[in-house]
Design a protein around this nucleic acid. Structure first.
Length: 673
DNA sequence: CAGGCGCTAAACACCT
DNA sequence: AAGGTGTTTAGCGCCT
């Protein structure tokens, strides 16, 4: 159902192939990623069997992957909406919900405007830089949080209500029959509460849920006060069905669990910014009425006589709006209309699923957000929740990619230096944008900075295949990889390539063959690919003085100024490690890394976005030029991989474009084949 | 507008 | 025969 709306925007393309059609760029590029239902993504996911794509997603069931896609899609859509809101609210200082105020999104209004209906999620990704996306997601997160809270609350209320109802009804029913149903309910409730708990944890991790010092101590501590609730439940069960139950044991256990989880849920129920705990009155059923401010919850006042499912004179049971004059009548109605039967159970289940869906999505987005924030070194508006003994590892990369393949789900790690990688500059560019990346974004530093981001976010990296391949190869000690290893590197480093498998492999092969800079070397155990830096450099346009696009991008970025500084810093920081970390390199490989950074830093693209304006293109620190600087031109044009000067002695003579040194270096040290 | 670049798709050959 | 690896060609979009 929702899927359609999500993918709809993007669709319109032949689906399966996206081919080269008008959409290709977008749909394919970043698209593949987020495009939930879009066939391209889904199809390819099946890897190899893209054929299967077609309308696979239209099947009732979604695979986890599809679901994720879908969720992401939705997230982006939500983000889009937020953009609009943001844009409109930009005018009115008095922002609404305090939630985001602090971390007010910094998104160009223009973007927001554009995002209206015309942008597809993919485009959004392209247009928005990681930080911006992050901001959006943050907002989105807030919204979801809100929604979830409402859902959770509702859900709980309903479940509790049902429990009560059953309790009452149960007295007139054979206990045995009731037992099972209650158990089922209990399980549902438990499930939901677990979700809540999980969710809460996620939020806490991110700091989206602000725990008051007092609360911070832990939800569990709130037990005493909220005890009513937790303890109530078990009692309910005990008093009612538990005894004499076939599954009494398990039932009891669950009851206990429930107790704990319920507490958590309770604390969770209180919104991040909940005003003073004024109304922590537990409801008869143990449900604290904290969210009285919310539309829905507003209905059930603190009146002890009120009922969570009763408000504004009508029954709040999902899909039921029966009017009830008073509570008594309502209770009656409840017992008759919403007794414990299949229908009610089904409704509960549906509600559960809704909650679950949201929870999943939120969890995922949370994770992503966390990764993004960690990476960007940003904090939502809170003390970083993901406080880990941050030992900013030198650099994720220098280590020659020995990182354990963190699953996409793996929580993010250390924070990277503030700087938003160049990514922010080049329109967040999926493939299409690469041209920019080429010039303004040092792939290695960008990668280093957004390592986690790309690793976990299904976003197409803004680098060309060639540069990625090169990066992969150069990262290895001996600067050579087999095709398969290259594949592995791609999948290991980029979530995007984990998902969208099919085509990119072909592209990789294509690039390897096509570009002279990639040299195939027969090896003992087969063929390996190496990089001919000289060729690589050759193929890049010499210079690019302030490309219009770049400037444009730069300007469009809101926090451009601020970022500028951080970017540089980050860039420098991230680059150094590479250079100064020869530790793990073998003699020969030492040079291998250099090229990377150099190219990145000084590469022709020099026009580092940020630098462009404020600092010299080559913000390269002294060391940089020193360590690596090499001679300018490919001294001799002769063969590409000419055994350059003995690696040891790069010609200090010319300081040509930094780029060139690579070649040199590479050649020399590489002496490949 | 032309040319270059990068991407995807696809056909084909070769090898294991 | 199937699958992986390489090579080529073609068409398209974007950028300069």
């Amino acid at each position: 159902m929702m899927v359609e709306s999500a993918s709809e925007t993007i669709r319109s393309a032949p689906s399966g192939q996206n081919g080269v059609g008008s959409l290709s760029a977008q749909a394919d590029g970043s698209g593949g990623a987020g495009t939930a239902g879009t066939a391209p993504a889904a199809g390819r996911d099946a890897s190899g069997r893209e054929a299967a794509s077609g309308g696979a997603d239209s099947n009732g069931e979604m695979s986890p992957a599809e679901l994720l896609h879908f969720q992401q899609q939705q997230a982006l859509q939500v983000a889009r909406q937020f953009l609009l809101q943001q844009a409109s609210s930009l005018n009115s200082p008095g922002n609404n919900d305090s939630k985001q105020s602090a971390s007010a999104v910094q998104v160009p209004v223009s973007v927001a405007m554009m995002s209206q209906q015309m942008l597809t999620p993919q485009q959004m990704q392209q247009i928005l830089s990681p930080p911006q996306l992050q901001a959006l997601l943050q907002q989105q997160q807030a919204l979801m949080l809100q929604q979830l809270q409402e859902y959770y609350k509702k859900q709980q209320e309903q479940l509790h209500l049902q429990l009560l109802t059953q309790q009452q009804a149960g007295k007139q029913q054979p206990k045995e029959a009731l037992g099972n149903k209650q158990l089922a309910f209990q399980q549902q409730l438990l499930q939901m509460q677990q979700l809540q708990q999980q969710h809460l944890l996620n939020l806490q991790r991110q700091g989206l849920v602000s725990l008051q010092p007092s609360q911070a101590s832990g939800p569990l501590q709130a037990l005493p006060q909220a005890a009513v609730c937790p303890t109530d439940l078990p009692q309910l069960w005990k008093g009612e069905g538990a005894p004499g139950q076939p599954a009494e044991d398990s039932g009891r256990q669950e009851g206990l669990d429930l107790a704990s989880t319920a507490v958590t849920a309770t604390s969770f129920a209180s919104p991040p910014k909940v005003s003073p705990p004024l109304s922590h009155h537990p409801l008869p059923n143990g449900q604290p009425t904290v969210l009285t401010s919310r539309r829905d919850s507003s209905s059930h006042e603190e009146t002890p006589s009120s009922h969570p499912l009763y408000g504004h004179g009508e029954c709040k049971w999902p899909g039921c709006e029966t009017l009830c004059e008073d509570l008594g009548q309502f209770i009656k109605h409840l017992n008759t209309e919403h007794a414990l039967d299949d229908r009610s159970t089904a409704q509960c289940r549906v509600q559960m699923q809704v909650v679950q869906q949201l929870e999943i999505q939120l969890a995922k987005e949370s994770e992503r957000l966390q990764a993004m924030m960690a990476h960007l070194h940003m904090r939502p508006s809170e003390p970083k929740p993901f406080s880990q003994p941050v030992t900013v590892s030198a650099d994720p990369f220098p280590d020659g990619l020995v990182h354990p393949p963190t699953s996409a789900a793996a929580p993010v790690t250390p924070l990277r230096p503030p700087g938003l990688g160049s990514a922010s500059l080049h329109g967040g560019g999926p493939a299409r944008r690469r041209s920019n990346d080429k010039f303004c974004s040092p792939i290695s530093s960008e990668l280093a900075q957004n390592h986690e981001f790309y690793k976990n976010a299904d976003v197409r990296p803004p680098f060309t295949y060639a540069s990625l391949i090169r990066q992969a190869i150069l990262e290895t000690p001996d600067r050579q990889l087999t095709l398969n290893e290259i594949y592995n590197w791609f999948t290991r480093m980029f979530a995007y390539f984990r998902r969208n498998t099919a085509t990119w492999k072909n592209a990789v092969r294509h690039n390897l063959s096509l570009h002279k800079c990639f040299v195939r070397v027969e090896n003992v155990k087969g063929a390996v690919w190496t990089v001919d830096e000289r060729e690589y450099q050759k193929r890049r346009p010499p210079k690019m003085t302030g490309s219009p696009t770049l400037v444009k991008n730069m300007i469009s970025g809101l926090s451009y100024g601020a970022l500028n500084a951080s970017y540089q810093a980050a860039l420098a920081e991230s680059s150094f490690p590479l250079l100064s970390n020869p530790g793990m390199l073998n003699p020969g490989s030492a040079s291998s890394l250099l090229p990377l950074s150099q190219e990145d830093l000084g590469a022709p693209g020099e026009p580092l976005p940020s630098n462009g304006s404020s600092s010299p293109p080559r913000l390269s620190p002294p060391q940089y030029s020193h360590q690596i600087q090499v001679k300018e031109e490919p001294a001799e044009a002769e063969d590409d991989r000419r055994p350059g000067p003995p690696l040891g002695a790069p010609n200090p003579s010319t300081v040509g474009p930094p780029e060139d040194r690579d070649l040199e270096e590479d050649l020399g040290g590489e002496d490949m084949s």
